[in-house]
């Protein structure tokens, strides 16, 4: 083995991580007092937690080569349902679980329409997103739910254990759980097989429809959980509160695909992708960079990461 080959392989495999490290170094040099501190590290983990959780779901759906465009609307719905239940005095645990179950079922419907009627997931979930948006507005009357939310409801979103926010802990646990599922279980391997070649998977005896349905359902459940956690973090639920996470989550997944050389959606890649987006937003705000410049930079960095990875792989697919 030649040393140069190792560097080449290393860069090909971890170019995006290098980029992430460079970003951290530059921010740390420019504002060591505010950026490179333990407090801000904790801050960043809390800020990316919601994005990571919703993007984990998007990763599952992308593993089976589908899209779910309704995740933003599902998150908004999850948040307002949880907040309304909390206001109505329902036990807090149920406030967290019920929206997740409801959205799991909605995800199954998404999957069922896609697999049963062979409708493009793009169209199905876009329509579902519109339906859910309408429902959420009707359900809330367009108003933010914030009055009379019990204090217990905001504990998960605002409290910490040993200075580590609960949201960050939940994010790490879920990332490990889904990494394990995708990497070490038959379920995960089957999802990748379906994404790799659906017909071959079908022929080899994989119940493609069932697994796709499950991918949509889990994705929707994670989106709902994100919405619930967001409501808990903000102490309020906005009827379009989760919508903003939709594009960001796919940006995280796409960035995540560039993290490892296989170039497929993967759990740790998504985590790194979301972390890079989160660090950029955090660092640029601390540097007092105007918002428009933040958007320009974030977009450029995503394109740069994808291009470099393609160059590294030596293909243009």
């Amino acid at each position: 083995m030649n040393k140069k080959i190792n560097i080449s392989d290393l860069f090909r495999a971890y170019g995006t991580i290098f980029a992430g490290i460079i970003i951290v170094i530059v921010f740390s040099i420019l504002r060591p007092d505010a950026f490179f501190t333990m407090g801000n590290l904790i801050n960043i983990t809390r800020q990316i937690s919601l994005l990571v959780i919703i993007a984990l779901g998007a990763t599952l759906v992308m593993c089976v080569d589908e899209f779910d465009l309704s995740i933003g609307a599902l998150a908004s719905l999850g948040g307002v349902v949880a907040a309304k239940l909390a206001v109505a005095g329902v036990p807090i645990l149920l406030c967290f679980i019920i929206p997740v179950i409801i959205c799991f079922l909605i995800g199954l419907i998404n999957g069922w329409i896609v697999t049963r009627f062979k409708v493009l997931s793009f169209i199905t979930t876009l329509a579902m997103s519109t339906i859910l948006g309408g429902f959420t507005f009707w359900f809330t009357g367009g108003a933010t739910v914030f009055q009379n939310i019990p204090k217990a409801f905001i504990i998960v979103g605002s409290k910490s254990i040993l200075a580590i926010p609960l949201l960050s802990i939940i994010m790490v646990i879920l990332t490990f759980v889904f990494w394990f599922i995708m990497r070490h279980t038959a379920f995960g391997r089957k999802l990748y097989a379906i994404g790799g070649n659906e017909s071959a998977s079908q022929v080899s005896g994989i119940h493609v429809k069932k697994y796709k349905n499950l991918a949509f359902a889990l994705c929707a459940a994670l989106a709902a959980l994100t919405g619930v956690l967001m409501a808990s973090r903000l102490g309020s639920a906005h009827p379009t509160g989760g919508d903003g996470l939709f594009l960001q989550s796919y940006a995280a997944v796409f960035l995540g695909r560039t993290v490892f050389k296989e170039g497929v959606p993967n759990i740790w890649g998504t985590f790194v992708g979301a972390a890079i987006l989160g660090i950029l937003a955090n660092g640029l705000t601390i540097l007092q960079v105007p918002t428009f410049m933040q958007d320009l930079l974030t977009g450029c960095i995503i394109i740069l990461a994808v291009i470099i990875q393609k160059m590294g792989r030596g293909d243009s697919k």
């Binding site: 140069k4 090909r12 170019g15 290098f18 460079i22 960079v289 410049m293 590294g312 030596g314």
Partner: peptide
């Protein structure tokens, strides 16, 4: 592969340079 390794090094350098430049520009834009 060795030649490619050299090219990759150039790309690493280009990436480092591009990112540093972009972030510094952003910081100065304020």
């Amino acid at each position: 592969k060795i030649i490619k390794g050299g090219q990759i090094m150039k790309k690493v350098f280009a990436l480092v340079l591009a990112l540093t430049l972009m972030l510094s520009l952003a910081a100065c834009s304020n």
